[in-house]
Structure formats: structure tokens, C-alpha cells
Amino acid sequence: MIPPVRRLAAVSVLGVSVLGAVLAACGTAEAPRAARQASAQPSPARPSPAASRPPTLAPGPAGQAPVFAHAPRTGDKTVALTFDADMTADQGGRAAAGERFDNPELIAALRASKVPATVFMTGRWAEEYPVQARTIGRDPLFEVANHSYSHYAFTADCYGLPTVERDAMRADVERAYAAFRKAGVPDAMPYFRFPGGCYDGQALRAVRGAGVTAVQWDVVSGDAFATDADAVARQVLEGVKPGSVVVMHCTRSAAPVTERAVRAIVPELRRRGYRFVKVSELIGATGGHR
């Protein structure tokens, strides 16, 4: 989760006790009508593997995974809204007790407004909500990216999160992809967002073998634990520049005003001439260079 203040370096998780509130769920059980109609049509010819490969950045120095925060500040007024679907590996009990952390109204608002988005999902979340994971992953409006399996930190001292051992970091990323496949997400993207936004050179080297580009952001929405949708909208609108990546959440319990904020953000950015895109389009615009 991101604290309700402007910070670009990390996602604040207010201690392990607060993590119990961060089960971000963001989907609906019903597949979109367009997707159902498309499935009834003959499949088009498959592109070559090279043509269909999602864009990534060139490797970083010293064997590190590359890091992407925003696209070049060109005249192309594009912006990517990203939503973290957080669930830590030890939060199943809260979900089993009936606590609701999904936000179907948010996903419905994005669909109604035809806003593309990238959902950074934990593998544990996909296990808990496989139908929602599948419908998001099969909706062409969205793309699913990796937010780790466990939502444990990849560095020490990351807002109270438990930590992943160095030799288990790559496996944690790959376990998330396995959970996505099991849930029925067909083409999860090779993009990885560190839990808490916390990383260092060791973490970047550890996940490089998973073939991912690490994706951060340059605009913090402040929606985590916020109660004022207008304040969230103002923070986003003040921060967005051409090529921006906005980090938000799709959880009713820990980010209850996000859907209302999005309903204000989208028309205003469109009025300013912005076009909403997925992270993959922004990375593609870099030509593979950071």
C-alpha cells in the first residue's frame, strides 16, 4: 500500500498489523461481454513469438534487472494507471473470516470508461480469488503483472513487512507466475513491482533471472487508507506528466475511495489531452532503453 502522502521511493505498509487490511481484490466474477463474444469467433492467426513478446528494458548494470518508473517526457500525453492487488502469504485467515477486500465498482468504472490499466497482482491473491484473477487477465482492457507471490519485502526494514531470503527471491517471483497460470491468466506480463516498492542492488540481481523489468512509478496517488476521494484525485492530477505511471490500489478495505477518485481523475486527464495506456505501451515507447 502507498501512504496518503506524496512519496516516490516506496509503498508504505503500516506495520504487520496493518497488513491484515491489505487484501486488495479487484475483479468481477463475470467475464466481460466483449471477451465472451470474442471467444466465440474464429481465432486469428498467431503472430510469431518475436512479434508477440511484450516490450522490456535492456538489462541493468552488474546483472541487475532494469527499473522503469516513467516513459520519456515527450509530447505524447500518455499516462498509465496501475493498481496493486496486495495479499500477503499469511492473510488467508482474514479472508476466510469473511473480510471483503475486492472492489468490483472500481473495475466496473474502468470498464465503463474504457480505461486500460495494469494490475500488479500477488500470487497469493490469485490463489484466493482465481475467478477474479482470470477475468482480469482475460480482459483485453487490462494486463496482469507480478507483485510477488508472498508480498514479503525484498529488502530489510521495509515498513514492517516480513522479508524474503535472498536465495528465495527469484523463486517467489516465479511462484507468482505459476499461481497466475493456475488461475487461468493466460499471458501475465514480464513486469515486477517490489512489495513496498523496496529494492536494492541485491534484490535486482536476484530477480534478473526471472526475466522481468522492475516497474516503479513517478506519481503516488495517496489512496492507501485515504478517506477523501477529492484529495486523492488532486494529488494525482497535480503529479501527472506525459509518460507518468500512477500507483493506486483496488481494495475496498484499505483504499476505500479509489473508485470515486478514478471517476474524477479520468475525465479531467482526458480534458487535458491525456490518453490512458497500459505499462507495456509506455515501456514500448522507450525502445528498450532506460
Rank of each mutant, 00 (worst) to 15 (best):
Q132F: 13
L141Y: 07
R138K: 08
P116R: 11
F120W: 08
V144C: 06
R134F: 09
E127I: 05
R124L: 06
K114P: 06
M121H: 04
L141H: 09
R124Y: 14
V119K: 10
P140A: 15
P116C: 10
F142Y: 11
Y129S: 13
E128A: 14
E128D: 06
D139E: 07
K114L: 03
G123Q: 09
T135S: 08
A117I: 01
E128C: 02
T118R: 10
A117Q: 03
Y129D: 12
T122A: 02
T135I: 07
P140L: 07
V144T: 13
A133Q: 05
E143M: 00
L141G: 04
A126P: 10
P116D: 06
V119P: 05
M121L: 12
P140H: 04
V131R: 11
A145I: 03
Q132R: 14
Q132M: 10
V115A: 01
P140K: 10
W125Y: 05
A145P: 02
P130R: 05
R124F: 12
K114E: 15
W125A: 13
G137W: 03
D139L: 01
V144P: 05
M121Q: 03
A117P: 03
V119N: 09
V131F: 01
A117S: 07
F120N: 06
V131I: 08
G123M: 08
G137V: 02
R138L: 02
P130T: 09
V131K: 02
E128Y: 07
S113N: 14
V119M: 14
Y129R: 14
Y129V: 03
V115E: 06
L141Q: 15
G123S: 10
P130M: 09
R134T: 02
V115L: 01
D139R: 02
G123E: 12
A133W: 11
E143L: 03
A117T: 05
A145G: 00
P116L: 08
G123L: 11
V144Y: 02
T118V: 10
P116T: 06
K114S: 15
R124S: 15
W125F: 10
W125C: 01
R134M: 13
T135H: 12
A133E: 08
M121C: 13
A133S: 12
R124Q: 14
P130F: 09
F142I: 04
M121P: 01
T122Q: 04
V131M: 01
R134N: 05
E127C: 08
T122H: 05
A126H: 07
Q132C: 13
V119F: 15
G123D: 11
T118Y: 04
Y129W: 15
W125D: 04
D139V: 08
P116H: 09
G123A: 11
A117M: 00
S113D: 15
Y129H: 14
R134W: 07
R134D: 05
G123W: 11
K114I: 03
V115F: 12
W125N: 09
G137K: 00
T118K: 11
I136C: 12
T135Y: 10
E143P: 00
K114H: 14
K114M: 00
G137N: 03
P140R: 11
W125S: 08
R134Q: 14
T135G: 07
T135E: 14
A117K: 00
R134I: 00
A126V: 05
